[in-house]
Every structure is written in C-alpha cells, then in structure tokens.
C-alpha cells in the first residue's frame, strides 16, 4: 500500500514534503538544544567550567551518573515514583473510562446533571488547607494513597474520553445487548478494544502527570524515604539557589551539589518518561488499525 502511494507523488507534493520536513527538523534542533546542553553537562567532570555554553563534552565521565545511582534517596524516590505512577494511572484509567462510558449513554438518567457536576469542578477548588485536612483525616499521610486518590479523575480527561466514546458506532453494542450482555461486559469486551487511541493518550497523560508531580509528595510525605523522585531531584537541583522568599540573609553555606551532578539528576528523572513514549506510540498506530478493521 505504501509503495503505491510513493509512486504517485507529483512535483507539488514533493515541494510540500521537503518544506514540511525542513521545518520539522528545524523545530527538532531548537527543541534539542537545551537537552543537549544538559546532557553535555551531565557527562562532564565537575572541574570543567560551564559558564559558557558547550555542545560537546571536553572531557567525558560517567561519574555524575554513578553518584546519582548511588544516592540513597534517589533510589527510594525512583521506586516510590514508579509505584505511584503505575497505581495512579491504572486507577485513573479504570475509573475515568467507566464513568465516561456511562456519561456517553444518552439514556442514562440525569446525564446532563452528572456531567455538569463534574465539569464544574474544573473551576473551583477549596484550596490547600481543606484537602490537607481531608488527607490527614482519612489517615493517608505517608501512604501512596495520598498521592493517588486526590487526582484520581480529571474532569477534562473524562470529557475528552466521553466524546471519544460517543463517536464510536453504536451498532456493535446494540447487537451485543440483544444477545443479553450487560453493560460492564460490553464495555470490557467491545468498547475498550475499540478505544485504544484514547486509552493510550489517557495513559500517557497520567503517567507523565504522576511522574512529574512533586507538590503532593512534599505536602503529605513527612519522611525522606517516602518521597518521590521529583522531590529529591528538585532538592538537588535547587541547592544553591537564592531563597525566593528570603528578604535578607545571604546564605553562608556553599552549595554541596555541583552543576554537573544536577544535570545528571535532571537527565535521570526525565529520560525514563521520554523512553516510554516511542513504545506507547506503537499503540497509536495499532489503535488506528483496530479502527480500520471495524465494520
């Protein structure tokens, strides 16, 4: 199929492709620039001066990464981050898709009311304090649930998912209904397989959200061994920054962490999440194929 397409390219199309490709590559270059900078820094020994930009390391070392791997709290932070990400994403997927499926059904009673009830939450929040009291009251402090439950469903993601499900053809479900299948069975056996694109998107959003989230861990985790990777990373990276809040006192302490170590820490926290993407992207295409075979 692809080879046939290629044969048909005409000159105008070729020009379009070339320009298009050129623009995209330019975009890639500007995008990669800061990354390359950090990567170079992370691979340089700390006695190289980085007060000007370098694109390639003058001297090469793994020492920074080795220090990162050996850091006690980076290790525990990594494990905690993986746990919250996996658990949080799974729960979010299950609850969001279930609810979206229901809200996509025009015959569900008071559907509009329930939808509005959920949408409304996008605009109002009670603030930090009531949520903190709630977590404390539920005895969730220092547990992974404090990181997973408060962000279980996003109204936005729910609406997007609902819209996707609404766009699916209704015939398949109807025939299953006639065969006597219940809603949960239909959702699981028929709707979910058709929904790969949105599931993958949801998954990706939530994986990234959970992986990058640090504020809640800072609020609800009071012991260093319970903190997630981002909190540990921030602490290392922010070391030596002048306190934004301090109106006085130049700090006497010197920073402990070198810039090269900071760069390695940033790379270490960022790379895993970037690595996930190409893998996930396959499912986009798979989702497309599933969509094609329907009917």
């Amino acid at each position: 199929m692809k080879s046939i397409r290629k044969l048909r390219i005409h000159p105008g199309g070729l020009l379009f492709d070339t320009v298009n490709m050129g623009m995209m590559l330019l975009l890639c270059i500007t995008t990669l620039y800061p990354f390359l900078y950090l990567l170079t820094m992370s691979l340089s020994p700390s006695d190289v001066s980085f007060t000007t930009i370098k694109i390639w390391p003058e001297k090469f070392t793994w020492a920074n990464y080795q220090m990162v791997f050996e850091h006690k709290y980076i290790r525990s932070g990594f494990v905690n981050a993986v746990i919250r990400t996996v658990l949080g994403t799974l729960i979010t997927l299950v609850v969001t898709v279930s609810a979206a499926y229901v809200l996509a059904k025009p015959y569900f009673p008071h559907r509009k009311f329930w939808t509005q009830l959920i949408v409304l939450t996008m605009f109002f929040s009670g603030g930090l304090i009531p949520t903190y009291l709630m977590i404390k009251g539920l005895n969730l402090m220092n547990t992974v649930w404090a990181l997973v439950l408060p962000s279980m469903v996003s109204a936005f993601q729910l609406i997007v998912t609902r819209n996707f499900l609404q766009s699916l053809p209704a015939e398949l479900e109807e025939s299953a209904k006639i065969d006597g299948a219940n809603d949960i069975y239909i959702l699981w056996k028929i709707v979910i397989p058709l929904s790969m694109p949105i599931l993958v998107t949801l998954g990706l959003w939530n994986i990234v959200f959970h992986w990058n989230q640090w504020f809640d861990s800072m609020l609800y985790m009071t012991r260093p061994e319970n903190e997630v990777l981002q909190v540990v990373m921030r602490r290392i990276v922010l070391d030596g920054e002048m306190d934004m809040l301090s109106t006085a006192v130049p700090e006497m302490q010197r920073q402990v962490n070198t810039e090269t170590l900071k760069a390695a820490t940033i790379m270490f926290t960022t790379i895993p999440i970037i690595l996930i993407y190409p893998f996930v992207q396959k499912y986009f295409i798979k989702g497309m194929l599933v969509g094609a075979v329907k009917g």
């Binding site: 930090l128 304090i129 903190y132 009291l133 921030r234 809040l245």
Partner: peptide
C-alpha cells in the same frame, strides 16, 4: 523532627498551622 521542604517552608508551615 518536622521535615518541611526547604524551598517551600513558609507555605507548608502555614498549612500545618491551619491544621
């Protein structure tokens, strides 16, 4: 020992007071 994040200590402290 109270461990409050160094970069956000005022905000966290206030929250604890509120509780």
């Amino acid at each position: 020992i109270w461990n409050l994040d160094h970069a956000n200590v005022v905000e966290l402290f206030n929250m604890r007071l509120a509780a």
